[in-house]
Design a protein around this nucleic acid. Structure first.
Lengths: 232, 232
DNA sequence: GCACGTTTACGACTCATAGTCGAAAACAGA
DNA sequence: TCTGTTTTCGACTATGAGTCGTAAACGTGC
């Protein structure tokens, strides 16, 4: 009754580079959509689930050890989303810390989201969803850890948040809020001052490098709890 | 290279009934997993995307007009999640307002999440994810609208939140927070008092019956904005 | 060395939001 | 009319967040 339906995975891997949010893409050499930029991914194999599949396929483009966070985004299943056999895609979103600069194949490059070249198929939708997910989760999780190096100064962290959110962020409040919620720790180390001098900045790290959600509505959390629960 | 992979959709439809969170399920008559309870769903057709598919298949179990909210949950893709041909499932989660009591087929019934009968395949995982999604979204969205009737008293609304969250909720704070964020409106109407008397309660409604997110980290929203953005 | 510009750190003040408590209002039933 | 119930609403307090200003710690040029 049905023609064969393939299943693929795709990943929008984001990183703050040069203060701007960028996405990893490769340029298609063959039709359809030759010359356009596509997200890493490919067909789901019989012996792997979608998480394993996206990690395997990302490994073909970058050193997966550089990827600090990967999560499911959504399913894209429009019957005509790609030409040829019907293909349902599970989209993922990944984050690479700003200090990583993984080696890339010749056809692969980073592109600013604000200045994206022509993209293949419906991949621009996936990139848009990934950006929205990132912006939302920065607000109620510790997801900043996946954008930041292991150690950083508050100024550096602020620059990452500005790049990801696209609007000014107060360094004082950022530090206070993250500290109060127990997400941030001073390392004791001191960063060397910049070229134009200035007081040397203290270095910090995130206490957790796995996703944690913080509170929203205080009313709606169990009474007496501090509301800081881990997420699998 | 690959054996055929089917794609199905499944939905965990939740409702607060008798003050408890319940899920819609039907009892399988045939093997595999005969006698166990399964979520509504079925195979994805060639001409529909997953959203259309889940709505079509839910319509076989309930009046879809009663379903106030549906959203994607996650993909379940373990190669052995079901016996037989490999099947990747896109799981959804749906909400039915507490005043709806849709007619159900003979094999279909509501079950309390706290007291779930044996479930088929990996459907218990989907139910668990749905509950977690509901609890989280109640805290930073207006998702309560999908649990509540069009009009309700604060006490009724509080009971719904208690049922969904599983812990006590302050009626005063619930009203104040929802009102402050512009999610709640008094209708002017007055509800009749209960059997044991008491002051008649004012009736309220949600200003929006589509999903809206409210703020989390105030630091991380654009300066000067009230942070109340619609979500598609 | 010393003044100057620069950058970070941090305390002080103020406003907004949330948690708690208790009194008053509005009903039913005896 | 009195009592018990339920809802409503104000007052008070605690905490979190926004803003500002000043001090600390550097490099540079004189």
């Amino acid at each position: 009754m049905s023609r064969p339906t393939a299943h693929e995975v795709l990943a929008a891997v984001l990183q703050i580079r040069d203060g701007h949010l960028q996405v990893l893409a490769w340029q298609r050499a063959r039709e359809p959509d030759a010359g356009r930029w596509a997200l890493p991914g490919g067909r789901l194999r019989d012996d792997e689930d979608v998480e394993a599949s996206v990690r395997r396929q990302l490994a073909e483009k970058v050193d997966v050890r550089e990827i600090a966070h990967v999560e499911q985004l959504a399913v894209f299943s429009d019957p005509d989303r790609v030409p040829g056999p019907r293909t349902v895609a599970t989209a993922f979103f990944g984050l690479v810390p700003s200090d990583a600069d993984p080696a890339l194949p010749a056809d692969t490059a980073w592109h600013r989201l604000a200045d994206l070249p022509p993209t293949a198929f419906d991949h621009a939708l996936i990139v848009r969803d990934a950006r929205e997910r990132l912006r939302a989760k920065l607000s109620y999780t510790n997801l900043g850890f996946a954008l930041a190096p292991h150690e950083f100064t508050i100024s550096e962290l602020r620059a990452l948040y500005v790049g990801a959110l696209g609007h000014p962020v107060s360094a004082t409040n950022l530090q206070r809020v993250l500290t109060r919620r127990g997400l941030l720790q001073p390392t004791g180390a001191i960063a060397p001052p910049g070229p134009s001098g200035g007081r040397p900045a203290g270095r910090f790290r995130f206490t957790d490098r796995s996703l944690r959600v913080t509170d929203a509505f205080a009313v709606l959390r169990p009474p007496g709890e501090v509301a800081r629960s881990a997420v699998p």
